[in-house]
Amino acid sequence: MTFIIKIKRCRGTESPAYRQSFSYDGGGNTSVAAVLKELNRRRPLLDTDGSPAPPIDWECGCFARKCGACAMRINGRPQLACSAFLSEMNDRTITLEPLGKFPVVSDLTVDRSCMFESLKQIRLWLEEDACGGERTHEERYQAARCLMCGCCLEICPNFSPEGNFAGAAAAVAAFRILDQTPYTEHWEEIAARYKKLYFEGCGKSLACHDICPAGLPVEELIVRSNAAAVWKK
């Protein structure tokens, strides 16, 4: 089966974006990540017009849904390229674009560093030995699976990298830390910052819940973070 892979490209922050299409024969269990890998192995890489193209810049690590590096917009939907399969595509043309909320570095690679900064700002770490009972073990385990891929921020109507709303990834991490932190000054500080950097900015669209490529129970984790930090339950 022949697919046309249409990629939004940009060679560096100062350069204008353009679209370039490549032809790919395959199907079934081939992921978009495997397609990109194969395209970059072509010597030379030619687009559908037969013009030579520079290698496609994209971030990848594990190819196994474990590292979150390869998040991008595939036919408009933010997801991981390693777990988007050709057999699932409705159309023979597949459009790949970088996540739109983050500054583009080049091609499909974006700068997600603001996500990591947010966790630092909310002071999400333990200062004492972890506490927290059996009752919430499942939720903590789920929260710790967060890939920091950015799909939840991409889909979020309230998030922009210039703003100070931290988004769902931070709320998920906040649950874990609050749940394991004894009631101390540090706990209070996290709760206060969480309220300001997450709670007050969230419009409760919960698009983050549906989009999460790791399938985290995002809604439940947010509800729990809110309950702890804001409603003090």
Binding site: K66, L119, K120, R123, L124, W125, L126, E127, Y141, A144, R145, C146, A173, R176, I177
Partner: peptide
């Protein structure tokens, strides 16, 4: 479960974040 590495990394990343801050 079946992602011990990921779970350990999450905790160590938290621990190092404290010293980053």
């Amino acid at each position: 479960r079946c992602d011990t590495g990921k779970q350990i990394m999450t905790a160590l990343i938290d621990a190092v974040r404290r010293y980053e801050a």
